[in-house]
Design a binder for these strands. Structure first.
Lengths: 201, 201
DNA sequence: TTATTTTTGTTAACACTGTTAATCTATATT
DNA sequence: AATATAGATTAACAGTGTTAACAAAAATAA
């Protein structure tokens, strides 16, 4: 009898309902306003019912992070795909812009993943295919750019880490300190990306 | 009669006692474990007594931030002072290293100021002398380096913002993601600082 | 089908959090 | 000495994540 299968599916449906409610609360009210009681209220259950489907709030956070990280990877891949050129330098450039764009388009997710919960990133990515993980993507494109002579031949891993650092710097500062007297945004981003590339040339 | 003066001093002493307790809790247990009740316990008062001296917890946080920011500025100034050379390029270099060093030596403070509460920075600095504020210091040294031909003559403000972004990137990533497979720290920092400078040359 | 066991959800409760109101006490002013 | 003011305390409110005890419903065994 498939009763066991059905229950398994029902449990998965309930888990989905819970994280959907959590996502909705997160995008509308921000993470600081996602409480177990509010999630429960949204799906007409008691707060403690959730604990039959998730061990604790952290498990729900992990799902929010996975959700956001999937959007992140999509943005990166789209950004590179939208780059017509097949030149490694151009494609790397497109990736760098795509990273910053993700942050500016999804500031709550960027904050949640890269500012507040970076130490959890391992847990978020364990089930992902290695080849689509963000940093691997970046490293591969750095290597390609080096092989084509666009970048000077350093240690590709270190160069990629340096690029990530600079990308994270401008993205997180623009997001977490919007009231600072920043230079006009587009121009500032262009300047930073150019400086980053030039620094490795 | 100086009774009014004495009370004023006593109030200031009590405020000091409170923020000292808060600082101590912060450096030993981390900010997430600084609660009003724990501060009160440490100085043998009831939790609500604090509210006669501080409007709310945020006011105490501001003092923690000021405390940390003072250490930050001291580190920057010491870093530059310890640089024997009078060459603007060398001095700028020393400032960049001093910034990262502050983050690595005082990760809790770096996190509190530049990761979690950057939006409060205005409140932290309002009473400071303009000329010692961190970003102004950086901008001035960038200008000096430009005038000496060490850096290419861009908009100095934008160049300084770009440097800050890259500094914040590497510092915050090293702090908030210590378990990542970073390149050997010293070498990575050297690489990043060199790339930053080269990017603006 | 009936009896038993397991699972699912609810309410009550615990130990916290920041903060406000009411109250008592010690000091200062008239 | 009587009154007003300021200081400190306890009780309480509205939250938080989470655990325990218990009722109802569903799955399994007889």
């Amino acid at each position: 009898m498939g009763t066991k299968e059905r229950r398994k599916r029902e449990i998965e449906e309930m888990r989905l309902e819970i994280i959907e409610a959590a996502v909705q609360l997160f995008v509308t009210d921000g993470y600081e306003n996602v409480s177990m009681r509010k999630i429960a209220q949204q799906i007409d259950y008691s707060a403690t019912a959730i604990y039959k489907y998730f061990a604790n709030k952290e498990e729900i956070l992990i799902h929010l992070l996975k959700h956001g990280y999937a959007i992140f990877l999509t943005c990166l891949k789209e950004g590179v795909a939208n780059c017509k050129s097949s030149h490694p330098g151009e494609r790397l450039n497109a990736l760098l812009y795509a990273y910053i764009d993700f942050g500016l388009k999804h500031p709550e997710y960027y904050r949640l993943i890269f500012v507040e919960n970076l130490h959890q990133l391992q847990k978020v990515m364990t089930e992902e295919d290695d080849r689509v993980r963000g940093f691997v993507l970046l490293t591969e494109m750095v290597m390609a750019a080096m092989n084509e002579g666009v970048l000077k031949k350093h240690d590709a891993h270190m160069a990629a880490q340096s690029l990530w650092a600079s990308l994270h710097g401008i993205t997180s500062l623009l997001i977490t300190f919007p009231d600072f007297h920043w230079h006009e945004k587009e121009g500032f981003i262009d300047f930073q990306v150019n400086a980053m590339i030039k620094g490795l040339t």
